[in-house]
Design a binder for these strands. Structure first.
Lengths: 275, 275
DNA sequence: AGCCGCTTGTGAATGCGTGCACAAAATCCG
DNA sequence: CGGATTTTGTGCACGCATTCACAAGCGGCT
């Protein structure tokens, strides 16, 4: 039970992945907080949330987006098959994912788009607003701050930070930049829920520590470093370099496959797979 | 055997990739190219590359970065334990990951930093340069193009694209912007290996199709859509909204836990781990 | 030279996630 | 009203990934 192996968010996707974060994950790593007390099977998903696998959570967010697109096109109900192909996953997996949050489908018919949407939103905690702080107003931070409402609504950016004295006080995207020394105070005062780190790698750990001091429990890290955080803090990382390197690996692998396929051209013709 | 379930990159992530990455992240989804012909178990890593799990590849990239940091600080050798904690993973997992690429450690001593570095680089295909094209020169695309050499070296940005007529021809980060209709030609001509999609979601699929037409096999997608691609194309996605929603889920989950913990106050107080 | 301590590399076990296949349920139609 | 049809929800099995635990190997010390 004392497995407090700090293991980052990722996967990184899987996670993750993932995402990749992974991914943080890769892969994601769901905490082994199984069992505990209740073995109930109530359709209500009140405190069943903790049982949802990390990978499924990531996909739920995808379903949510696909659903919103469908709603815009006037769809009222959707089958698992439709939704699955639109989201790029197996329909069985989709149904299993949905079963984690309750049974909101109608057999023989499918799911009501709006019901499913609001249920997923509820589970993901999107009913309220999660206040976001962006630290590091460079190229990326600037872009993030200018998103304004941030991807979709529900994640208002409510604080900006940087070290550069020339930036302090300057409004970016309608919000003044504060000094990073004020992170703990301001985050605590404004009840910031999510900290986004867009600083150079050297500053990231210090910034992260200050965010944690400010009571921030969730961090989205764009800096190419592995952050060390106390166990109760959740870190997801988005790492451009790593994503590129993973792709690079696939380029290399494909090149190799092609080479060896050229070499060992006609062999093992037993499998007439056409793919 | 005919499990050609297209399943996008990553979970992630995490990731797993995703992880996330992956999955993404987990995360990640390694292609089920098992069995087939060879069931060999040769320790040589020549064509064993395909056997490296996706999640491990993501971590290798992390190790690589940690190693370069250590090299800068003058470290010559490093033990699996050191490297593992610095990378935020279990040491056994690290050793297993490294074992996928060969045996380059010395028992009782550890790994030589430079040897390990170059071996990982080799496996990840970082010995050569992977040319990158960025499509969509908005806020994000601008930031990406201005990275210049792109995170670390090895990924030169060699083409930029957008639809906006006002942008065509304008140099961004020292490179002129081309029209997206020219994607296939230019990508083929310049041998672009990786396409980065930083367009609005509505344009992403069309852009992706053009990239594929141009012979690009690897895509890094920042647009919040699920891309449909032929099987030979590898897609990694970096999705801000989804990352935030995953974090949001954790906020909600923690709040719930705290609530129920407050209710069922004193129970299981065991773990005093300090990390 | 031989022993001792340290660290790697890996076989084996466990756990998690995925996908299949089918029973249960709900609608539609004759 | 009952059966046919459709689609959900899930038990089960399989495979991958993670972790443990230990033998094998290497350097240093006496």
């Amino acid at each position: 039970m004392a497995r407090v192996q700090r293991d980052g968010g990722d996967d990184s996707a899987p996670t993750t992945e993932l995402p990749a974060v992974r991914d943080q994950d890769p892969s994601a790593v769901s905490e082994p907080v199984t069992g505990s007390v209740n073995g109930r099977k109530v359709p209500m998903a009140t405190d069943k949330a903790r049982a949802i696998p990390e990978a499924a959570v990531a996909r739920l967010a995808v379903y949510l987006r696909v659903l919103s697109g469908m709603a815009e096109q006037g769809a009222v109900t959707v089958s698992s098959e439709e939704l699955a192909t639109a989201a790029g996953v197996n329909s069985a997996k989709l149904r299993k994912d949905l079963s984690y949050i309750g049974t909101y489908g109608t057999r023989g018919v499918g799911y009501e788009v709006d019901v499913l949407t609001s249920e997923i939103e509820r589970v993901l905690g999107l009913t309220g607003q999660q206040k976001v702080a962006v630290v590091g107003i460079g190229n990326l931070g600037h872009a993030l701050a200018n998103y304004g409402g941030f991807p979709g609504r529900g994640f208002p950016v409510e604080a900006l930070f940087d070290v550069d004295p020339d930036l302090i006080g300057i409004p970016v995207g309608g919000l003044p930049v504060n000094h990073i020394d004020d992170i703990p105070d301001i985050c605590a005062k404004r009840k910031i829920a999510i900290g986004v780190i867009a600083t150079p790698p050297t500053a990231a750990q210090a910034v992260c520590d200050r965010l944690v001091d400010g009571g921030v429990h969730c961090v989205l890290n764009f800096a190419p470093v592995v952050l060390q955080v106390p166990e109760h803090v959740e870190v997801r990382k988005v790492d451009l370099a790593i994503e590129l390197q993973i792709l690079s690996f696939h380029v290399a692998r494909n090149a190799e496959q092609r080479a060896s396929r050229r070499a060992a051209a006609a062999r093992a013709s037993s499998n007439g797979e056409v793919v």
